[in-house]
Design a protein around this nucleic acid. Structure first.
Lengths: 272, 272
DNA sequence: ATGTCGCGTATCATTATACGATACACCCAT
DNA sequence: ATGGGTGTATCGTATAATGATACGCGACAT
């Protein structure tokens, strides 16, 4: 029996994608049976799907251990993504200048549902590995970028987001209290920037300014990650914020919000 | 009729991947019919597959133009890739130091069949957009990285590669003559580095040193991109090469060649 | 040695599932 | 109006994906 709207849904394809999604931070290479176990797909099915992905060049297969892992094609997907995202092309040169100017790590973050994604990273200092690679997905409420973006939303949506969007603990200092998050967003809305302390990494400070579309809604942010050991709040506001804001403003004008659609208002996939 | 080895090949999945691969530099967003035309898949099939990919979050669909484009999930694939590639984790901090030290754009390139892929990029100057984003695939023979890697291969393989691997013209200065490419590789083999002038971009110089595995074969390279306007050959060899070599050597020891398998010796997908 | 377990691989009949053709609604040009 | 171009939806058919089953191998413990 089919759930409902699925005469134009190809199950095999969806299952194949499941296999791809099974790979993450903690599953970097997997045997056939591991894949089967994690996806819950059954040995035969997994075998066929994994083999297909291998033949098609999406999975590398170690000839001796027979374990699968993401192929270089996964990076080509990112390459194609970059060309398709008009924001990146506009922002990149400005971000490079900014990073060189500041001498600090600069990122471009986009809103994606109730998360933010680091779309571009320009690391200038060594940090956690995860902070140096693109594509990381984080709960918007836990990041300075997410908060400053939310700050540009109408109060109604803002409230709803603060109450319903997910939060996750990353460090002992991560704020889980939605009251505090609310306040942080209010402040961001008034000031036009957000500063978050030790939310993701201890002694790391995140600073963000919003990239605003025609409609006044932000859909991305310029983000800077610095060390709490070398920066005071005052110095940040004096030396970093203005430059971040200039950069964000220089990127802003040309764009329309196109991804920051509230999760519940997402386009219906298809509706019998 | 089936070709032969396909009882464990899922066609629908392969077709879905075809859709994904249809997106590139020149196809950044596509309508249903465009997709159908490019993949040659027929309207109905394309409709179903595209819809599936949309529902599964792999393709965004503009609610008004109804055009598809890569979603943020494409970046998450890169994220997963990075975790799975042991080289990246080792190299990243060293590359960051190098880039800061040189003040020039530094890249990490891996061999992938007869191409090289830029796996990590640390742009310090503005250049062409394509040179700032990861995942770019280039014919190995046309790049300093590819040549210096090939330089570490046994002469037999090296010769074969020079004769059969693809070359492509990017600038009026791109070397298409395989004799010259051969010489360039020989020089790289002796010197331990490769310098390429204006092969990809006019007035851009590429400099690479090899990252070598246990077996003596290189499978990746540290690459630096600089301007011909500000650097002379002598200055490069004096100030850049040594640092590149140090970095590459610092990364090398821990690794085994695992992707640089000659194209013809790639693991057979399955063989009835 | 010997048995067992887990793995990757291969085969096969069954029917669910993906298929192409077809038809409709819509928008923008002629 | 009209015609070509979209995106969408439906339907009967047979292709193509399915799960169970079986085999061969190596690791490990008995």
């Amino acid at each position: 029996m089919k759930t409902k709207q699925d005469t134009l849904f190809v199950g095999s394809l969806a299952k194949g994608l499941q296999l791809l999604r099974a790979f993450d931070e903690s599953h970097t290479e997997m045997s056939l049976s591991e894949l089967a176990r994690i996806t819950g797909l059954g040995k035969s099915a997994t075998q066929r799907l994994a083999n297909t992905l291998h033949v098609e060049g999406m999975l590398d297969k170690d000839p001796v251990t027979r374990r699968f892992r993401p192929s270089h094609a996964w990076l080509q997907m990112a390459y194609a993504y970059y060309w398709s995202d008009p924001l990146v092309g506009q922002a990149m040169p400005k971000l490079i200048s900014l990073a060189q100017d500041l001498g600090e790590t600069v990122n471009l973050a986009e809103l994606s549902g109730d998360h933010i994604v680091y779309v571009s990273r320009l690391p200038c200092k060594r940090t956690q590995f995860a902070a140096t690679i693109i594509g990381r997905h984080l709960p918007a409420l836990c990041t300075s970028a997410g908060r400053v973006i939310l700050g540009s939303f109408p109060p109604e949506e803002r409230r709803n987001a603060v109450e319903t969007w997910p939060v996750l603990r990353f460090t002992p200092a991560t704020t889980l209290d939605r009251e505090q998050i609310h306040d942080s967003i209010e402040r961001a809305a008034q000031q036009g920037f957000a500063i978050c302390d030790g939310q993701m990494i201890l002694n790391e400070i995140g600073v963000s300014t919003p990239i605003i579309g025609h409609d006044g809604r932000a859909f991305a942010a310029v983000h800077c990650s610095i060390s709490a050991h070398t920066w005071t709040r005052a110095a940040i506001e004096r030396e970093i914020i203005p430059k971040l804001q200039d950069t964000a403003n220089a990127i802003s004008p040309a764009f329309q919000s196109h991804r920051g659609i509230p999760v519940d208002a997402r386009p219906e996939p298809s509706q019998g």
